[in-house]
Design a protein around this nucleic acid. Structure first.
Lengths: 221, 221
DNA sequence: GCATTGCATCAGGGAATCCCGTAGCCATAA
DNA sequence: TTATGGCTACGGGATTCCCTGATGCAATGC
């Protein structure tokens, strides 16, 4: 709009330095954006928001260690008005709805053209929500007739926590290790595992581990 | 600005435009590199090599559609002297050795600092091979005490029975079920599992299950 | 011949897990 | 308000994991 107004300060959260550099370059070349902070993990992201007060955040949901959904929940819990755009390499059908439920204001895949990202940021700064047209259509239909077309993956019926545990199982982590990863009781992880087994209709624990490994590896050879 | 020596022409292959932009920015800011072409998939990558004759390629192994390992094999088959550096978000323990066997000259994770990437490129252009120190050490040790281990998968050192058990583990069978499958004592299966873990240098049972599942799946492909 | 080595089979026992419930707390939906 | 679902956690018995052996058998080596 008017070049007089100050540029929007953007925080970038991604654990890949090269991706961060690409985002910095991309956004700083736009007339209305300015990257004011970068963070490689959830802890640094929270610190950066508190310190430099950005106008908006761009976060990857697959960070090292903790996952980005938790980060979004934490951010929204502490700064309810801070808008977050999720930038992910994973297909929107997997994580977009979860991210929005967690409080994100938009979801863009890394496969998209850079213009989609800047467009999404402007839309969000304008108080709106951004998702792709395809997903928008899907969510609309879902809102209308209640139950939309069957979800692509049975994993969709898992809760956020259960999905997180499933991913760690698929990475070869045991119950005890997952409990430490998430700072939870072993008993809690056992509970999550039981619920995962039940929801995915898997009979035994080894079958569940197999499913988890295959699921985590899908899309990768 | 007097380029005494001509800059190395670099081809970038990655299906994420934002990552490509980051790489372009990173490399073009170096005095000795110049991005001469970008490709989002394997087909365009082959075309770009044929057209602009780059000096080196930086390729992501998780492209959409076909996988990057196949791309590397194709590149090496057609241009045996064209050096390829793999840039991946996945841990080197998963794909580095396979990438090198396919003909890549190096492997760098996206989690690494950008300097690692440029350093690896210079090393490769110098005719050497780049992997992380950790992986280098691992491969050295492997080459020393496992003399005939160059072209064999680690599974080759397993006995017939152990291999049979590994396959059943990879199919999601538990210890008790495997014992029934093979009409053996549970204790015997436990023993085989212990030996498998030891021979494959796996620390925990869940890690072994993960390995088994992946191995069984890739054997099928 | 006989020792060495590797394979396959099993046992004992303590630690960790799996599996079946139960249950409090909280947020959201009806 | 009640109901529902998700996250957390516990108890207790069954099972598996993990380590240390131990036996018989075949092939290999000197």
């Amino acid at each position: 709009m008017k070049p007089v107004e100050t540029k929007a300060k953007v925080l970038i959260v991604d654990d890949h330095p090269i991706v961060r550099q690409g985002l910095v370059q991309l956004l700083n070349c736009e007339p209305d954006f300015m990257v004011c902070a970068e963070a490689a993990n959830a802890r640094k992201a929270m610190a950066a928001i508190a310190e430099v007060k950005p106008d908006i955040g761009v976060v990857d949901i697959t960070l090292q260690g903790a996952n980005g959904i938790e980060l979004i929940k934490n951010i929204v819990a502490q700064w309810p008005d801070f808008p977050v755009l999720v930038l992910s390499m994973h297909d929107e059908s997997l994580y977009a709805e979860r991210a929005l439920r967690a409080g994100a204001k938009g979801y863009v895949m890394k496969q998209e053209a850079p213009e989609k990202l800047t467009g999404a940021l402007r839309r969000i700064l304008n108080g709106q929500i951004y998702v792709s047209e395809k997903l928008q259509d899907k969510m609309m239909r879902k809102a209308i007739d209640g139950k939309a077309l069957q979800d692509t993956s049975p994993v969709a019926i898992l809760s956020d926590r259960e999905l997180e545990v499933l991913q760690l199982i698929g990475q070869g982590h045991g119950t005890r290790q997952i409990a430490e990863d998430l700072s939870l009781s072993v008993k809690t992880i056992e509970s999550h595992r039981a619920h995962i087994k039940e929801k995915l209709n898997l009979k035994t624990a080894p079958e569940m581990v197999r499913f988890a490994v295959q699921w985590v590896n899908q899309g990768v050879l």
